[in-house]
């Protein structure tokens, strides 16, 4: 772990990305404390302050650093609250998908035979369609809502984890420590969960990093299209969508700043993930 951190530190880009990522997550978690106003408390917003450009002052003397939207909400506060929903939904979905994918991938690798064939066929079938399309169709049938978005994001992700874990587990299964565990007559679940699984984790973490960035982006796209989270829980995608109507009259900030928040989040996750992948790749280890 320490060796990994030392190597990770050598890339300044990755280090900055990690710092940005930590800051974003902290901002999302602490949104109610950091935000200048609660954008969904109707007593704190004033419709008269609607669509003010960045830097304007409200009637009460408060400064809107990033401007306000059509209802007079402070964009900075709306973005902080939106980040919370975007990251929360995507992270929850990723953890559930990870659990499902890991279990099925392990089963496929360890049991082999028909179980393996059925699970991997299912994975192949699903991965031959773009995740965007699967999520869109699922939400079309299920309707909108936070829980439904999570279901859709889990459905599009599990197959990646199942495939990665299976690959790693097939390699690990042949190693001596597993043989030793078998000779000790440990039970199959014990071998799988306490011996095989921990050693399959590193590649999985890299895939999960890429996937969580993908999930955030996908959630934003779905919410933008109006099939994602409900209006009462606006994620970044919905904030951008709200600004679309004002865009034609040149009021760019309502869509622009939530978009920047989204891009910075996704990009910092991707850069950290890239670095982790390079470190995990033995061919690049000099």
């Amino acid at each position: 772990m320490q060796r990994l951190w030392r190597q990770f530190r050598q890339s300044p880009v990755a280090l900055i990305s990690l710092a940005v990522l930590v800051a974003i997550i902290a901002a999302a978690v602490l949104a109610p404390l950091l935000a200048p106003q609660n954008p969904y408390d109707l007593r704190q917003i004033d419709v008269l302050d609607g669509t003010l450009p960045p830097g304007s002052q409200s009637l009460t003397g408060m400064t809107y650093l990033l401007g306000t939207d059509g209802q007079g909400r402070d964009m900075l506060s709306a973005i902080l609250y939106g980040l919370r929903i975007s990251i929360g939904v995507s992270a929850t979905a990723t953890i559930i998908a990870l659990a499902i994918g890991m279990t099925l991938g392990m089963m496929a690798a360890y049991l082999g035979g028909r179980v393996d064939a059925v699970i991997m066929r299912l994975v192949d079938l699903q991965l031959s369609f773009p995740s965007m399309l699967i999520a869109l169709i699922l939400l079309a049938l299920l309707g909108r809502g936070v829980d439904k978005v999570i279901v859709a994001l889990v459905t599009v992700q599990w197959a990646y984890y199942a495939r990665t874990v299976r690959g790693a587990a097939l390699v690990e299964r042949g190693k001596e420590y597993i043989e030793a565990a078998k000779c000790l007559r440990l039970s199959t679940p014990r071998i799988v969960f306490s011996h095989l699984m921990p050693n399959c984790l590193p590649p999985l973490i890299v895939v999960a990093m890429v996937q969580i960035a993908h999930a955030i982006s996908l959630e934003a796209t779905l919410s933008f299209l109006g099939v994602g989270v409900p209006v009462t829980q606006p994620s970044l995608g919905m904030l951008i969508s709200n600004g679309f109507d004002f865009m034609m009259s040149g009021k760019y900030w309502i869509s622009f700043f939530p978009g920047i928040a989204l891009v910075v989040t996704v990009m910092s996750i991707n850069l950290v993930g890239d670095r982790l992948r390079d470190l995990g790749n033995p061919r690049l280890n000099r």
Binding site: S217, T221, F224, I240, S255, G259, M267
Partner: peptide, 14 residues
């Protein structure tokens, strides 16, 4: 890779 397609579309229009 990181830019969300829909947001880039909005910026292009803008």
């Amino acid at each position: 890779f990181s830019l969300p397609t829909f947001w880039v579309g909005l910026m292009l229009i803008m």
